[in-house]
Design a protein around this nucleic acid. Structure first.
Length: 606
RNA sequence: GGUCCCGUAGUUCAAUGGAUAGAAUAGAAGUUUCCUAAACUUUAGAUGCAGGUUCGAUUCCUGCCGGGACUACCA
């Protein structure tokens, strides 16, 4: 299929060569779709080239336009407005465009040199169920995977599960002490929520203990000796909580004891840990299935947390790292605009960074992926800057291919989600809610198919989140997220469904549309269809599925308008009918394909 | 102290340095003998402030104001 943007650039470069006898790179020309209020389909902007040619932009536009219109059969006319050269494309171009799309069903996919790419996303802790923040993460990760795959790459999806540490030990301890051995099945609670509930229970018990302790003479003595006497009692105890947990709390001592036993491979502790994590994984799996996502490989921190030491020692030998007198190992990242960063504690144990260094290497060894993308919230921007700088320092061959897909946190209309205040929106509850809302809306329309209702509800939720530029912090309004009108998933689904409905009713089809002359609405649609590969390519380059989401909406909107403008089955001629059937079929395919890149399914009717 | 991100209609989001800053929603007014009205049409409404670079700035640079995140042998 003709890449029209490129063709125009090439023609323009050729025109410069012929008219001004100068060689320019075609890529230098800016070509954009012409604004609606002007005559033309594409616009060549000549301001940038004016300097090299030493001519006023309008003059250049006229000269280039004159040449291009003569040299290219597919240009039917040109019009110059200031420095803008508006190009109209010939009917031959428009009719061949649809033919080309029909002939190559993969026309919507960008063609790029194949790469092996790894995408890490989700990566939850095992002490709590997934929440709204994870949903944004998962949708971004999944969509990035789909988009890169559409670009022709070989993409692997992985996550690293934080299955160890003090948090899960808290759940384990609370369950042991207070549950009487009840299982999720017996309790009738989804198993990851069940484990999360025991985590909450631990925190509750700990608070009771902490509050009681605050009344003791020991607490009072500590409070009196506080360094800053301005601080009042409640603020002090808030800041002292961690220290109390580590030094004085009996529950804290028990939880840490459990962690020590875990680290010592105590069989009973390991068995309990496996049992409870098993519950969590079963719950997660259900949530992933409902979200429609899956992974190629799961990593567990319990298996990776010791990695990286070898690389650190290696770096130490090569003098890229340095050791302090106390034995701790550091890296100086000031040349990268960062600070000094610790890699091994003075007792020789790893930190988070050490593990990430090791994990990156392990994945490279395993998958041979020269590009690795980490979908992680923007609170860890600094961490990843440091990690990538370190990988560059140790000379990892894939260091340039590391990318942090950093996304903004999800807020609620009332403000930040806070687990302590119980305002965290649970992923399972949320999915249930949107599907219920879809069911209510479907009732009026007498839609009873549960599968259709599920697809509609999920599309509302997913589209609401994925349409926002990942980098930006977003506000999640639960009421707006179940909207099905306007810029929403169901609106796009509806455009698709309308198309399918027409196609179903068209008994014949595939007939000739030879000689049919497209109208302006059809040109607009064809133009949009012709841009799809660029949009996806750009979304891949920018790591922004939102670009695909906005495109899909734009196309659906244009189609809805078209739907009101013209008749397909009762078109004015047989050619018109055949043409429109062929056109809307391609539109339907593109809508379905782009929504699939976002992880959104299309119903055939709704 | 250091590093980074974000400020666009009432609200939620768009806009590779390009033409008169686009949508959606909420508000107002309309459209159904017609392929699905979850639709369409019309209407009103915005670039935090002050400079600079440029033919041209929401976009790039500087300062300020406002919001957020990170960084101090935590993950």
């Amino acid at each position: 299929m003709k890449d029209i943007l490129k063709e125009i650039q090439i023609a323009a470069a050729e025109a410069v060569l012929k008219v001004y006898d100068q060689t320019v790179d075609p890529e230098e020309f800016l070509v954009t779709p012409t604004k609606k209020e002007h005559q033309g389909d594409y616009t060549l902007v000549t301001f940038a080239i004016a300097k090299t040619l030493r001519q006023p932009p309008p003059k250049i536009a006229v000269a280039l336009g004159e040449y291009m219109a003569k040299a290219r059969y597919w240009i039917s006319g040109v019009e110059v407005v200031q420095g803008f050269l508006n190009i109209s494309l010939a009917d031959e171009y428009w009719s061949s465009l649809l033919n080309d799309m029909k002939a190559s069903p993969d026309f919507w996919k960008p063609k790029q040199p194949k790469e092996k790419i790894l995408v890490e996303f989700s990566s939850p802790n095992t002490n709590k169920p997934l929440h709204l923040g994870h949903i944004r993460n998962i949708l971004l990760g999944w969509s990035t995977y789909k988009i890169l795959q559409a670009c022709g790459h070989e993409v692997y999806r992985v996550q690293i599960v934080n299955d160890r540490g003090i948090a899960i030990c808290k759940s384990m301890l609370a369950w042991t002490k207070f549950s009487g051995g009840v299982t999720p099945d017996q309790a009738g609670v989804k198993s990851d929520h069940f484990v999360g509930d025991w985590y909450v229970r631990f925190e509750k018990e700990f608070q009771i203990e902490y509050k009681a302790w605050q009344q003791t003479a020991e607490a009072n003595a500590i409070f009196e000796k506080r360094p800053d006497s301005e601080i009042d009692e409640s603020a002090f105890y808030k800041s002292y909580k961690n220290k109390y947990f580590n030094d004085l709390s009996s529950l804290g001592k028990e939880a840490r004891g459990l962690l020590l036993k875990w680290e010592a491979n105590d069989p009973d502790t390991i068995a309990l840990w496996k049992k409870m994590n098993g519950w969590v994984y079963a719950g997660f799996e259900e949530t992933y299935q409902n979200l429609g996502v899956s992974f190629d490989k799961l990593y567990y921190e319990s298996e990776t947390y010791l990695l990286g030491k070898g690389i650190v020692e290696d770096g130490l030998n090569k003098k890229v790292f340095y050791q302090k007198e106390d034995g701790s190992v550091w890296v100086d990242l000031t040349d990268a605009g960062l600070d000094h960063k610790i890699l091994l504690r003075s007792d020789g144990t790893s930190v988070y960074m050490t593990q990430d260094v090791g994990t990156a290497q392990m994945r490279y060894d395993e998958f041979g992926t020269g590009r690795m993308i980490y979908v992680v919230a923007d609170e860890q921007n600094y961490h990843f800057q440091a990690l990538f700088a370190i990988m560059a320092k140790v000379g990892a061959p894939y260091a340039n291919g590391l990318h942090h897909l950093s996304y903004g946190m999800v807020d609620l209309p009332e403000g930040k989600m806070k687990s302590r205040e119980g305002t965290v929106v649970d992923a399972d509850d949320l999915m249930k809610t949107v599907i219920e809302e879809a069911a209510i809306a479907a009732e009026e329309r007498e839609e009873v198919d549960q599968e259709v209702i599920r697809k509609i509800g999920m599309s509302a939720l997913k589209y609401f989140i994925i349409k926002v530029d990942p980098r930006k912090r977003m506000t999640f309004d639960p009421k707006a997220s179940v909207d099905m009108q306007g810029q929403t998933g169901p609106y796009i689904q509806n455009a698709y469904v309308r198309i399918q409905s027409i196609i179903r009713r068209a008994e014949d089809g595939g007939g000739s549309y030879e000689g049919y002359v497209v109208n302006d609405d059809e040109k607009t649609l064809l133009n949009m269809l012709g841009q799809i590969a660029h949009v996806i390519e750009n979304a891949a380059k920018e790591y922004s599925p939102a670009l695909v989401a906005n495109y899909a909406f734009g196309l659906a909107k244009e189609y809805h308008r078209y739907y009101h403008e013209v008749q397909v089955l009762k078109a004015e001629s047989e050619e018109a009918k055949n043409y429109r059937l062929a056109l809307i079929e391609v539109i339907g395919d593109v809508l379905k394909n782009t929504m699939d890149l976002l992880g959104i399914e299309m119903p055939e009717r709704m």
